[in-house]
């Protein structure tokens, strides 16, 4: 739901960033309030995934300007683990395989670390086992996942479900899901969407980075942002996603460029 009077969770202003010396983000502004679902759409290479990784603190991405405040704190000075503990969650586009680390041990370690940081009780292995099996049932995940190494040998769909399982376990304030829908068949998509819908509460928020409108049939966004060239060039409601689906992105880009030229013309005449 739109929550214009609600508390602001995330406030991104004029954010710029580069990777390997190449500027990717060129000035992003995005306010996210508790209770809201935002979708960020855009063509490949527009900077959507970079934006997601910058918010999570990926060390390969260098922030070159702007500010990001999360619940009033300066997010950009925080280490990735501190962001996670504060309530940021990134659902990876390509979840990483970690042979030799069991999924159950990893999930418990992550859960207890984050719980501890929030001043809540940790769970011993037996308690955690009950807790995690309950969550897995809700997400229709095979309990055999627990005994395998993290993401190792998982299919694309299994990896994405494992991300949603981590989301359910860590209960973040702000979940950024990077192309969570890609690689999912329709049944898996329904399960994932159902999980997200059941997790949305008045005090948390979701940012869905997606290339296709398909996911938004199941998770209804309050805002749809179009990203192109490292900027958000248009923001609308859920109907914008449908329009993008039928008309593509070109018209938005054209509209944006025309607007920029206009500004350039006004700027020139003022000078």
């Amino acid at each position: 739901m739109k929550n214009e009077k609600g508390p602001e969770l995330l406030d991104v202003r004029a954010l710029t960033a580069k990777v390997a010396g190449v500027p990717i983000l060129k000035g992003i502004d995005l306010p996210v309030r508790a209770g809201e679902i935002h979708a960020i759409m855009g063509p490949n290479g527009s900077g959507k995934s970079t934006f997601a990784k910058v918010l999570a603190g990926h060390p390969a991405y260098e922030v070159t300007g702007g500010t990001v405040r999360f619940q009033g704190h300066d997010l950009l000075t925080m280490e990735p683990e501190d962001r996670a503990r504060a309530g940021i969650f990134l659902g990876f586009q390509y979840p990483v395989e970690i042979p030799g680390v069991s999924n159950s041990a990893f999930l418990r370690l992550a859960y207890n670390t984050v719980q501890g940081a929030r001043g809540k009780d940790e769970l011993d292995p037996l308690e955690f086992d009950d807790f995690i099996r309950e969550k897995m049932k809700l997400l229709d995940i095979d309990p055999a996942f627990l005994d395998r190494s993290v993401n190792e040998g998982f299919s694309g769909g299994e990896k994405k479900r494992n991300e949603i399982l981590q989301l359910a376990v860590l209960e973040p304030k702000l979940a950024i899901l990077d192309e969570t829908d890609s690689g999912l068949d329709i049944d898996a998509l329904r399960v994932v969407a159902g999980g997200v819908n059941s997790m949305l509460k008045p005090d948390n928020a979701f940012v869905l980075v997606t290339h296709y409108q398909r996911l938004l049939n199941y998770i209804i966004p309050d805002y749809v942002h179009v990203m192109e060239g490292g900027r958000i060039i248009k923001t609308g409601g859920k109907e914008l996603a449908l329009e993008l689906e039928s008309r593509g992105y070109d018209w938005v880009v054209d509209e944006y460029r025309a607007g920029e030229q206009e500004k350039g013309y006004v700027g020139a005449s003022a000078a």
Binding site: A56, G57, H58, P59, E79, P80, E81, R83, A84, R85, F89, L90, F92, P95, V96, I98, F106, L109, A110, T113, V114, A117, Q166, L170
Partner: peptide, 12 residues
């Protein structure tokens, strides 16, 4: 792999 684990709250 390091970033993945840290993004789940584990220290470096």
């Amino acid at each position: 792999q390091l970033f993945y684990l840290r993004s789940r709250g584990l220290t470096e």
